[in-house]
């Protein structure tokens, strides 16, 4: 790929409506998570140093998070930071001063991750990556207050959506190739999902009866691996789509069979399955909140037009 083509690739424009939808969904999921913390009475416990009554050993680690270098390690500080997070998420969700609100979400979430690293999961890292990208996009100028205040944008840089796609593909592919335990493969009898569902810290319910349905869990293990490994092909799908006029049977097949739709459907099934069987909190919903990235704004517009015509 030449430099000119690389520049052109990241200089494309499209309606930022998809980014706006992702913004709203991500903010909604995170807002739910933080309100749930308050509902459970965990703000103090999770985010106050042990000296103030919480779980985290903030001052026993190095470096001490900036938050507790600048502010006292009290429950009051924890509540203040929780409030900042909730307000920032609300602003981000409604698209009010979106870039600023998004950056506050990222930096506050990062501080909270440093306060209690064990409580910060992979999904939190992924959502910080995503919110950072969205903060640098025009997502607040569509379906948001920023559109009302500063003018709606119907054409904006497409690179943030492309980066989100790349992020999702990378995450799945890397998760797939790192599943190196024998239980994920034939030598371990594809027993990984069966074993995971026996773990009381992960399973949502008791699955001791699952031995009778062992082949089903083996099939689901294989399905998970196929889905994650094939994420490595997602950039190729987009490349073939972008060069559809070029020759090649593989390219033609990819462009007619639409394998991306099947892959996305598999992903939805995977996350709905996780939501029904595992106690992983916002993980499956946050992942699904990012799936609109696979829809081109034009596809969405076409679908909406077709729906209107059908009425």
């Amino acid at each position: 790929m030449t430099w000119a083509r690389w520049v052109q690739l990241w200089d494309r424009r499209e309606d930022p409506v998809i980014l706006a939808i992702i913004r709203i969904l991500v903010a909604g999921v995170l807002l739910y998570d933080f309100l749930w913390i308050q509902h459970l009475g965990l703000v103090e416990a999770l985010f106050t140093p042990q000296e103030g009554g919480g779980f985290p050993d903030v001052y026993g680690r190095s470096p001490v998070p900036e938050l507790y270098r600048m502010l006292p390690g009290t429950a009051g500080t924890a509540f203040a930071v929780w409030t900042v997070m909730v307000v920032a998420l609300l602003c981000f969700g409604v698209g009010f001063l979106t870039p600023l609100a998004g950056l506050i979400v990222v930096f506050t979430s990062a501080q909270l991750a440093m306060v209690l690293p064990l409580g910060d999961r992979g999904i939190d890292t992924l959502l910080r990556n995503v919110v950072l990208i969205l903060s640098l996009s025009s997502c607040g100028r569509r379906l948001g207050v920023d559109g009302v205040l500063f003018g709606v944008r119907r054409l904006a840089p497409a690179w943030p959506r492309h980066l989100l796609i790349l992020q999702l593909a990378t995450m799945y592919f890397c998760a797939g190739i790192q599943k190196t335990a024998l239980s994920w493969g034939p030598l371990g009898g594809f027993s990984a999902l069966f074993l995971i569902l026996q773990d009381p810290a992960i399973a949502a319910w008791r699955f001791d009866w699952l031995a009778r349905w062992y082949p089903l869990t083996q099939l689901a293990t294989v399905g998970t691996l196929i889905f994650e490994w094939s994420a490595g092909l997602v950039p190729l799908v987009y490349w073939f789509r972008d060069t559809r006029t070029a020759p090649g049977r593989l390219r033609a097949w990819f462009n007619t069979a639409r394998p991306l739709r099947i892959w996305v459907a598999l992903g939805v099934a995977l996350h709905v399955g996780i939501a029904c069987t595992m106690s992983l909190g916002i993980f499956p919903w946050a992942m699904l909140a990012l799936y609109p990235a696979f829809v081109h704004p034009e596809e969405l517009a076409r679908a909406l037009r077709a729906r209107l015509r059908a009425r």
Binding site: A110, T125, N129, L132, A175, Q178, A181, L193
Partner: peptide, 23 residues
């Protein structure tokens, strides 16, 4: 990476725990 809390470590269920713990 630290100040933004961003990263790319995606080892999810790499080794299913065959010796799990019940709280």
């Amino acid at each position: 990476f630290r100040i933004t809390g961003t990263g790319q470590s995606w080892g999810l269920f790499t080794y299913p725990d065959t010796f799990p713990h019940q709280l």
